[in-house]
Every structure is written in C-alpha cells, then in structure tokens.
C-alpha cells in the first residue's frame, strides 16, 4: 500500500524558525514594556512630593545615536549578505559604538538626576516609574550589546561568513526592536510626561 498521497505542489516553503522565534520573543517583550509604559502614564503627576519630570533634559543627541544605530546595523546586514566582511565589521563596530554611547549618555543623565536633583527610585512615584522604565530599556540595550559583542568577537576571530547572514539578521531584528521601544519610551517620558 504505497498510496501515500504525494503533494502536488513541490515548492514547500515555511517561514524561517529563527525569525518566527525572534518575532515571538519581541511580542513577549512588548508585553513587559506595555505594562511599564502603562504604569508610567498612569502615575504621571501623581507623585505626592519630590522632584517632577520638569527636571528632565531631553536626551536628543542620545536618541539620535540610538536611532541611527538601526541604520548602521541595516548597512551591516547588507554587507554580510553580499559577503563584504570588512565592511560588515566596520558597520557592526559603529553600531556597537552608538549603542555604547547611548548607555553612557544614560549613565550621565542618571548621575545628574541622582546627585543634583536628588531623584532616586525611592524618592517618589516619578522616580520609581522613571528609573524602572528607562532602566528596563537600558537593560535591553545592554543585552543587545552583549549579543553584538559576541558577533564582533566571532567576526574578528574570522568565524563569521556570508552563511551567517540569516542569523545576524535575526539578531539585528532584536536591535531594531530595542530602538523602536526607545521611540515609545522617549515619547512617553520626555514628551507626554513632561
């Protein structure tokens, strides 16, 4: 009985599991961010004492850096797709630099807030929600940077080639997500909340 029906359409294509997995992760992460953003918005103006969002300075340069890193990583993706390893390493390094700049900027901002404006996570609701939300995002940048660094190390060790383009794109997807979240965080914290 060899009547296993043979499927007519020979081209049987399925989505890449890496991409599907990363998209799922991103959806899940969005859940976490949504809750923190909602809490932030809900508590705007409800602090009973202490500093208010007025003390915030809009981190324009920082944001430009982070957002442009999305561009550089796209360029890196292109490079690896075409097998241009040198160029890939360059763009990749630039992406990392921009990411690091962003974290450094955040550190400087927090330093000012803590030591000059005396806003800590326990000061009031604003402090609690601000550090949690921005900190959550910064953590994601950090995790992203760890991923980028690993790829960089492999690249420098000469272990990355054109064949890895797919995986690198999946990682880049995460980086784009981190950037996109910043747009939301930025809007909520520095525009709506101020």
């Amino acid at each position: 009985m060899s009547t296993l029906p043979i499927f007519a359409d020979e081209s049987w294509r399925l989505p890449s599991r890496g991409r599907v997995g990363m998209f799922s992760l991103i959806i899940g992460e969005s859940g976490i961010f949504t809750i923190f953003v909602v809490a932030y918005i809900y508590y705007i103006g409800r602090s009973v004492s202490g500093p208010t969002p007025q003390i915030l300075e809009v981190p324009i340069f920082n944001s430009i850096c982070l957002l442009s890193s999305s561009l550089t990583i796209v360029l890196a993706e292109h490079a690896i797709q075409h097998g241009l390893l040198k160029r890939f390493a360059l763009w990749w390094a630039l992406t990392m630099a921009l990411g690091i700049e962003f974290l450094a900027g955040t550190a400087i901002e927090w330093r000012k807030l803590i030591f000059e404006d005396h806003l800590t996570i326990r000061t009031n609701l604003f402090g609690t929600t601000f550090y949690s939300l921005v900190g959550l995002h910064a953590t994601h940048v950090l995790v992203g940077l760890v991923g980028l660094t690993l790829v960089m190390i492999f690249t420098l060790a000469g272990r990355v080639n054109q064949g890895h383009a797919g995986r690198i794109q999946v990682l880049a997807l995460y980086w784009h997500f981190v950037d996109a979240v910043w747009v939301v965080v930025f809007t909520v914290v520095y525009i709506v909340g101020k």
């Binding site: 959806i27 899940g28 992460e29 969005s30 859940g31 976490i32 961010f33 949504t34 809750i35 923190f36 809490a39 508590y43 996570i121 326990r122 009031n124 609701l125 609690t128 929600t129 949690s132």
Partner: peptide
Amino acid sequence: VTITPLTAAQVMLLIDRYLGGHF
C-alpha cells in the same frame, strides 16, 4: 502576551519591596 505582564508586575513588586519603590 499574558505571562509577560505578570512578570512585569512582579518585577515592580520586587522593586517596591527591595528598592523602596512606590508602584
């Protein structure tokens, strides 16, 4: 999209309990 809100809320709870937050 359901486990993650719980995780987020629990993180907030821990922030309240350990870092003195006010959520």
